[in-house]
Simulated assay, not measured.
Amino acid sequence: MDDYQNHISSVQISFDMLCMGKGVAKGSIPPPPPGCPPPPPPVIDFNIGGAGDGAVDRSALFAEINKGQDITKGLKKVTDDMQTHKNPTLRQGPAPFKAATVKATSIVKPTKVEKPASFTKDGKKWMIEYQKENHNLVVDNAEMNNVVYMYKCENSTITVKGKLNSVTLDSCKKTSIVFDSLVSSIEFINCQSVQMQVLGKVPTVSIDKTDGCQIYLNNDSLDVEIISSKSSEMNVMIPKGDGDYTEIPIAEQFKTRVTPNKTLTTEIVENKG
C-alpha cells in the first residue's frame, strides 16, 4: 500500500513539473493531446497498365543506353546537300508570300451606234450629216442667204451650185467640196484630210483644228484671206494658167521676239525639212 501511494505521488510530481514547463497552472486540467498527423501521400505507381510493361520499358531504355557508341548507328546520315554551309539554297528560307493576282475584268466598251445619213433643208440652212462613201451629193439652186453645214461626213464629195452665203465643214474626214461663189466664208473645224475648190470668188477661208487641208483657188479668188489656227498640213493650190497648179504650204511655225519698245514681233520660220 505504501508502495502504491509512493508511486502515485511520484506520478503527480512528474505531472506537476510537466505542466509547469508548459505554462499550465498547478491543479488545472491539461489541454487534450494534439490530433493524429495526416496520413502519408499515396505511393504513385508508375507501372500503370501492368507491372510487366514498366519493367520492359526500363529494360529497353537501359539496353539502349548500354550500347555506347553503337546507339548512333540507327541515325540517318546528313549528306552534303542537307548541310546549310555547303548548300546556300537552304539559307534562303521560304519564298515570301505573294498575294494572288486577280485578273482585271475587261471593260466592255459600248458599241458605237451608227446614225443614219441625212440630207435636209431647214429654212435657209442645208444640213448634210453622217454621209459616208457618197460622192454624188449636190446642193442645187442655192441662194445668197443660204448656208451649207456638213457634219461628220466621211469619204464623200459635195457640189454646191449657185452663189450662197457660207459653208461649214465640221468634224469631216476625207471630204471634198466644190462650190461656185460665197458671199462670206468657208470654215473647216476639227477636220482631217479635207479639200475645197472654188470656181468663182471666196472672201475668206478659215481653218481651225484641222490636219490636212487643200485649198484650190482660181484667178478670180486670188484676193482671198486665209486664217488658220491649231492646224497642220495646209496647202494653197494657185493656178498657173495651163490647167496646172502651184502648191504653196501655209506656214505652221513662227518665231516671236520682244522689241525694244516692249512689244512683240512675229515672223515665219521656214521649214527646211
Rank of each mutant, 00 (worst) to 15 (best):
K174N: 14
Q192H: 06
N146I: 03
N145H: 10
Q195H: 06
T159L: 13
E133C: 10
K132Y: 10
V148H: 03
V194A: 03
D170Q: 08
K163N: 05
V167Y: 05
E133I: 11
S185L: 10
K173M: 10
S156T: 03
F188T: 00
I158H: 09
I128A: 02
Y130C: 09
C153Y: 02
E133M: 13
A117F: 13
P116A: 15
V183F: 06
N136S: 15
E143G: 07
I158S: 07
D140T: 10
T159Q: 12
I186M: 08
V160R: 02
I128H: 04
H135F: 14
T159K: 13
N141C: 06
D170Y: 10
C153L: 04
S185Q: 09
S156N: 03
I128V: 15
E129C: 08
K125Q: 10
E143H: 02
N146E: 03
V138L: 15
K125H: 11
N145M: 08
V183A: 12
K132L: 08
E114D: 06
K124T: 09
Q195V: 00
F188N: 00
V147G: 05
N136R: 15
V178G: 10
V113P: 04
Q131N: 14
V194K: 01
T157H: 12
T157D: 11
L164P: 07
L182W: 11
S176V: 06
V148G: 05
V183Y: 03
Q192K: 08
P116W: 01
L182Q: 05
T175F: 15
F179A: 00
N190G: 06
S181P: 01
D180Y: 01
K112D: 10
E133Y: 14
N136V: 00
V148K: 04
V138A: 12
K152V: 01
S181V: 02
K121Y: 05
M144W: 07
K174C: 09
Y151N: 04
C172W: 05
D140S: 13
H135W: 15
E143Y: 02
K173G: 01
D170K: 06
E129T: 14
E129L: 14
N190W: 15
V113R: 14
F119Y: 14
S171M: 04
C153Q: 02
L137W: 09
A142I: 00
S181K: 03
A117S: 14
T159I: 13
H135L: 09
V194G: 06
G123T: 06
Q131E: 01
S184L: 08
K132N: 11
V113C: 02
E154M: 09
M150N: 03
C172N: 08
N136K: 15
L182A: 05
Q195T: 00
C191Y: 05
L169K: 01
T157K: 13
F179I: 06
E154W: 04
Y151K: 07
N146S: 04
S156F: 01
K125G: 01
L169D: 00
Q192M: 05
K121D: 01
V147R: 07
D122N: 14
L164T: 00
G162Y: 02
D140R: 13
L137D: 08
T157G: 00
F188P: 02
